[in-house]
Design a protein around this nucleic acid. Structure first.
Lengths: 222, 222
DNA sequence: GATAGTTTCATACAAACGTTTGAAATGCAA
DNA sequence: TTGCATTTCAAACGTTTGTATGAAACTATC
């Protein structure tokens, strides 16, 4: 029976340091110092530094995906198998935003870690990211149930834009706050979620047969 | 009169390598080998590796911003000082998307470099990014001229979401293509621009006095 | 064509990094 | 206690990194 004590100490210390200082600035020596373990412990327990990062990311991703699916299932059960599209999208972007936004001093370590992930994107993590697609397909399926007359292409774009707005808000919340001189309150998480969801819903609400997008009525350059 | 020959050779080689392999994998030695110059040349001409990266990024950013403002001015002049909101947003996201999307084998080196910038985000670049705010304010001003009855908060969010969709499409075009199994054609740049602009316009088109967003009509969790 | 300033070059430096090693320590079963 | 497997530890290894040095080569001016 492995003791796991050192393992978990390393994981906790690494997550804390990565969350605080980013991936580029944290060395193995920083981590083992923070965890009060020997330098060789990381390679002994995880194999390599990259595998340690990967384990951290996978753990947090699984938790995020699980929460998303939980909220999706809850919404669909309440609607007897078909949730309103806004509920589907809310289940998609809500957990991310709730986890990563909000008053800075109240953010948990996992939340700050995931913010780092979305900002810095190291190779070890980027490789894993591709597995996310299967997870997103479940939301495409739910969106299809919610909007059966929308074409798949529109659903894909809608999901893509919803994620884009959520992700970029996490990543650039500071710039938005600075640009708006504080007038955009990114700490009001539920308001942000409402905004993202409502815009995404509008993106999906275009009538299917419409020739082109409203904005395309203007002249197109080139 | 400095010859500048070595300088430009380094810049070109560095941009090519960064575009191809990313910031993390390219060393000074790779760059000088590609440029056929001596190792010390980078520090002699640029001071440090970070300053080389910064110069590359600043050059490309200025070109992008210039093109954005050119398109904005063109649109406003055509409308006697007030451009349609879709034209303003098109000037904002068009240059980015036109520069970074399109068939992969047709992408220029600067385009691929800017894609790397948006994906990897090294500290040397992140520090410079903050100066972008002044540039964005010019677009806020144009949006205000176009939609004088919208509150500033709404304009900020609209600009933020427009940039978010454009940026994330550049960054994650591969995932969208894979998720949609090619059904979303990210190589049709003008179509992508139309989509981003039209969604952003809808986000801004909500009547000002409306109590809350449509999506918020549903139950709010927590 | 000597001189001063600029640019190139080979080489070295010093630091930092992730990883490895082999012995010591510890835990556990017989 | 003996024996075996797991875990810890200090130390070192071998690269790789960006940068610095100082002499050589080049360029242009007088």
């Amino acid at each position: 029976m492995p003791s796991d004590q050192t393992r978990t100490a390393i994981l906790a210390a690494a997550e804390r340091l990565y969350a605080d200082r980013g991936f580029g600035d944290v060395t193995l020596r920083d981590i083992v110092a923070e965890a009060n373990v020997n330098l060789a412990a990381v390679n002994y327990h995880f194999g390599s530094k990259d595998e340690l990062i990967a384990e951290l990311f996978v753990t947090r991703s699984l938790a995020l995906n699980k929460e998303r699916l939980r909220e999706l299932r809850e919404a669909e059960e309440a609607g007897n198998g078909r949730a309103d599209i806004s509920e589907v999208l809310r289940a998609l972007v809500g957990p991310t935003l709730r986890g990563c936004l909000g008053p800075e001093n109240q953010r948990s370590t996992p939340a700050r870690f995931m913010i780092r992930v979305s900002i810095e994107s190291v190779p070890a993590i980027r490789r894993i990211r591709n597995r996310e697609i299967d997870h997103l397909r479940k939301f495409i399926a739910a969106m299809r149930r919610s909007l059966p007359d929308r074409s798949d292409v529109e659903l894909y774009w809608g999901l893509h834009f919803a994620l884009a707005m959520a992700q970029q808000t996490v990543r650039d919340s500071e710039r938005l706050a600075k640009l708006s001189e504080g007038k955009c309150d990114v700490d009001d998480v539920e308001d942000v979620i409402d905004r993202v969801v409502s815009v995404a819903v509008m993106a999906l609400a275009r009538t299917a047969g419409e020739p082109k997008l409203a904005a395309a009525a203007g002249p197109r350059h080139r």
